[in-house]
Design a protein around this nucleic acid. Structure first.
Length: 308
DNA sequence: GTGGAACTAATATTCTCCCC
DNA sequence: GGGGAGAATATTAGTTCCAC
């Protein structure tokens, strides 16, 4: 029996780097340049980080959406930014699930003023929701590493008309008696506490053992893009009225971050990667069929039929 | 420069062996 | 016998390098 967990649309948009295009914010002005407000916050955050690095202060990475990444020089990107790894994607999912468990037990505390929620996680429960409860040391080390690297990442958050750059998950304290127990806070958007907004359209459902299921049907080193795409499919299923979803090739390309394959001279793997994502979705019993088609603009598209 | 092969790194799973 | 640590192996992701 798998329970269902609410997953915030906004969070998934940040993970896939779509937070800007999915917001009301116009990022480009009439000349096609990035708008000043966005530039300002990006530059300020970069300056702050560079200053930190120079002075040996807190070091972290900033994960920018693709539109902004493209505008920044590559050497700078290498210094300040880092791609999200598959294990980080999995740990983030695990934290969403654990946060909701904590919330239902009344062990989660929300602070309105900073729009963050506090709760405690212990690593064994992280392992459990990641489906590695029975396995040994090495994988646990990787999970721990991914957990700490999430704590080292800042994300661009667009909330209505507000832009901030902050940590989605922040570790504040490690329990003195139990080194596996962490006191953490997460961004309010994990839950969208603001009830005044359109509440219904802010979530989709994922199974609480999603990581375990994905592990069961995949082999080899995990691929972050593919796993993000699987979450997108759960979201699309939730929104779909006719039991289908259509993705243009460029949409799939973006969601799976296939740009990285091109950058790394692995263009030949694009087809296999897309196929892999569809295969996993089929094995998860999420979709039952994939058809090819053409968009109005004569672009290749995929028509996916969800399993009822 | 670009395409692609070949190499290296990361991750997962299976095997082996030792200790209780 | 079995449980677990760690080695060996399989698979895939990411990097480098070379020919054109």
């Amino acid at each position: 029996m798998t329970t269902k967990v609410n997953y915030s649309n906004q969070l998934l948009n940040i993970e896939t780097g779509q937070q800007i295009e999915k917001s009301q914010l116009t990022i480009f002005d009439r000349q096609g340049k990035i708008n000043k407000r966005v530039i300002n916050i990006v530059n300020t955050s970069i300056d702050e980080l560079l200053k930190n690095i120079e002075q040996g202060g807190e070091s972290y990475h900033i994960y920018f959406p693709q539109e902004i990444e493209k505008e920044l020089p590559e050497p700078l990107m290498k210094q300040i930014s880092k791609e999200i790894t598959a294990n980080e994607v999995r740990v983030l999912t695990a934290i969403v699930i654990l946060a909701q468990f904590a919330k239902s037990k009344g062990e989660l505390y929300y602070w309105d003023k900073i729009n963050r929620a506090y709760f405690e996680v212990d690593l064994p429960s992280v392992y459990k929701v990641m489906g590695i409860g029975e396995t040994r040391g090495k994988q646990r080390e990787l999970v721990k590493k991914a957990f700490f690297s999430l704590n080292d990442k800042k994300f661009l958050i667009v909330e209505d008309d507000n832009l901030t750059i902050s940590k989605l998950v922040e570790i504040h304290k490690i329990d003195k008696k139990n080194p596996n127990l962490f006191k953490i806070t997460v961004e309010g958007l994990f839950f969208n506490f603001d009830k005044s907004k359109n509440y219904q359209n802010r979530y989709f459902h994922i199974p609480s053992d999603i990581n375990k299921q994905i592990r069961k049907v995949t082999i080899g080193r995990p691929n972050a893009g593919v796993e993000l795409f699987i979450k997108c499919l759960y979201q699309a299923k939730h929104c779909s009225k006719d039991g289908k979803v259509e993705y243009s090739y460029s949409k799939v390309y973006k969601l799976m971050k296939l740009e990285n394959l091109v950058k790394n001279r692995n263009t030949g793997r694009i087809k296999d990667t897309i196929q892999k994502a569809f295969d996993i979705a089929k094995k998860l019993d999420l979709i039952s069929n994939v058809e090819m088609g053409e968009t109005n603009l004569r672009e290749k598209k995929y028509i996916l039929t969800f399993t009822p």
